[in-house]
Design a protein around this nucleic acid. Structure first.
Length: 468
RNA sequence: GCCGCUAUCGUCUAGUGGUUUAGGACAUCGCCCUCUCAAGGCGGAGACCGUGGGUUCAAAUCCCACUAGCGGCACCA
């Protein structure tokens, strides 16, 4: 039975790298008919952020990544970890360490100065069991793993066999002095207890995996299969970070990215099909995903390609759905969204120009407000004192059936009769009614605006050009 | 410093010994369409496959070394 998990620590927001890890776990589970679980790794009390867990679940839901079973919260399982630490202590596979932060820091500084690898010197390992027992009642302590002198090997699905010599591995702390386990212990214990079959996580964990393998061995457990995913990178090839890029999934949501596009784009960062297909609906992703086709090298997060992909998804989307999704963005921009049908029509005219949901308010605002803003450059460039707008105004006022078709016929007729290029007529009208040079197809736009508003704006623009 | 991982167009990648004058996508450039902006269509430019050695009749593809980049080396995850 395939069981995988996504195990974030709730430190504020879901990182896109984390989302990629979650997605690959999810796809792997769904593809294989296995289970996808969530575990909250909240063992660092100093980094606790209130509300982070709720936000995490909310954003996962927004992404459409659903999970199986009840999420496991590590901070609720302290007794379990302690039990396993005790077992290790009894078997001499771990020992208590009474060293202070000060001593540890001092030691590390010295080692770095001497260009040695920073490593615990094993002082407390020398304590006898009874001394250790006695001291533990008087002083705070941590518990360290007793690392064997041995070669540690494990297989990684993506990278093949990985070897470390354990003499290079530090006597890792597995239980902190506040009674909370560190990642390494909690992770191994939980993965085993929960029956995780495959650990799919970021490459930053590759080095630590040796420690985990040792722990599995100490407990007499069979380790799961490992798959370490390549890192997501900044444009300068360093690990994707807040400093250089937008990393919070919620940032993308708030900017108007679609979850389907985000997931699709992120899926392609480290995974591909033989034919280099680009667009995948989630079901297709599930159908085609495999760890074997994951790459090994880090991938730069290319915001430009994501933007393109988002546009692809928006173009494919039914207008009704798009209009519905645009509502929060329009409301944020201060628009009334009660007339949904009208909204749909506006959006429909600009549909294939939209790359982000947040583009929508600006693209259609001249339909929604009465006092439109005239772009100065557009006015100066296009609005002329040539009487075109006055003539057009008069012609339009006589059109009974103010439809795109009728308007087009009349407008073209006017251009022809006066030997004007269509652009000499169309452009001023566009600027007059919308305030700008770019926009939807002119006649549909005029129809949607309605005769009254068009005439009003033509009049205003005529005055503006006269004032020049 | 030590350990580990990685290495094909600017970017994401296909490619698993010969079908490759290295394919696709984004970005970029040109043309077409056109009332503008987009979208769309067509085309161009762009990678001597990090470097150097092998193995082989034949290597981007296998092996080794080097180099570079990145990651890890916390009472963080």
């Amino acid at each position: 039975m395939i069981r995988v998990r996504f195990a974030p620590s709730p430190t504020g927001f879901l990182h896109v790298g984390g989302l990629r890890t979650a997605l690959y776990n999810y796809l792997f589970a769904r593809h294989n008919g296995g289970k996808f679980l969530i575990r909250i790794e909240d063992t660092d009390r100093t980094r606790m952020v209130s509300g982070a867990i709720e936000k995490l679940f909310e954003i996962l839901k927004w992404c459409g990544i659903d999970y199986d079973e009840q999420p496991v919260i590590q901070s609720e399982r302290l007794d379990i970890y302690k039990k396993y630490v005790k077992e290790l202590l009894e078997k001499d596979l771990a020992y208590r360490c009474f060293c202070t932060h000060e001593r540890l820091d001092e030691m590390r500084k010295l080692q770095i100065a001497k260009r040695q690898p920073p490593k615990y010197d094993g002082l407390c390992k020398k304590l006898s069991k009874s001394d250790s027992e006695k001291l533990s009642k008087e002083k705070p302590f941590t518990v360290r793993m007793n690392i064997p002198q041995d070669e540690i090997k494990f297989n990684d699905i993506i990278r093949g066999e990985i070897k470390f010599h354990s003499s290079l591995i530090d006597d890792q702390i597995i239980l902190k002095s506040d009674g909370y386990p560190t990642y390494h212990l909690a992770n191994v214990v939980d993965d085993h207890l929960i029956g995780i079959s495959h650990v799919i996580r970021g490459e930053e964990w590759l080095s630590s995996t040796a420690k985990h393998v040792i722990l599995y061995r100490y407990f007499g457990w069979t380790p799961p299969q490992f798959a370490h995913l390549p890192l997501l990178l900044n444009p300068d090839k360093s690990k994707l970070s807040k400093r250089q890029s937008d990393v919070a999934v919620e940032d993308y949501r708030d900017k108007g990215y679609l979850p389907s596009a985000l997931l699709n784009y992120i899926a392609l960062l480290g995974w591909s099909t033989e034919d280099s297909q680009q667009i995948f609906e989630i079901n297709e992703l599930i159908e085609k995903f495999s760890l074997e086709r994951c790459g090994k090298s880090g991938a730069i997060f290319d915001a430009q390609k994501l933007l393109w992909m988002n546009g692809e998804y928006i173009r494919k989307m039914p207008v009704e759905e798009l209009a519905r999704l645009s509502i929060p963005f329009l409301q944020k921009a201060g628009f009334d969204t009660k007339d949904f049908e009208f909204l749909e029509k506006c959006i429909s005219l600009e549909h294939d120009k939209i790359k982000l949901l947040s583009d929508i308010p600006h693209l259609i605002d001249f339909f929604l407000k009465n006092d439109i803003i005239y772009d100065e450059q557009a006015v100066n460039k296009v609005l002329k004192k040539d009487g075109v707008l006055t003539d057009i105004s008069e012609i339009y006022s006589k059109i009974k059936n103010f439809t795109a078709k009728e308007i087009e016929i009349e407008t073209r007729k006017y251009a022809e009769v006066n030997s004007l290029k269509t652009s000499q007529v169309f452009h001023p009208i566009r600027v007059a009614v919308s305030g700008r040079t770019e926009g939807p197809s002119l006649f549909e736009m005029l129809e949607l605006l309605g005769k009254d508003r068009v005439l009003l704006r033509l009049k205003k623009a005529t005055q503006m050009s006269a004032d020049k």
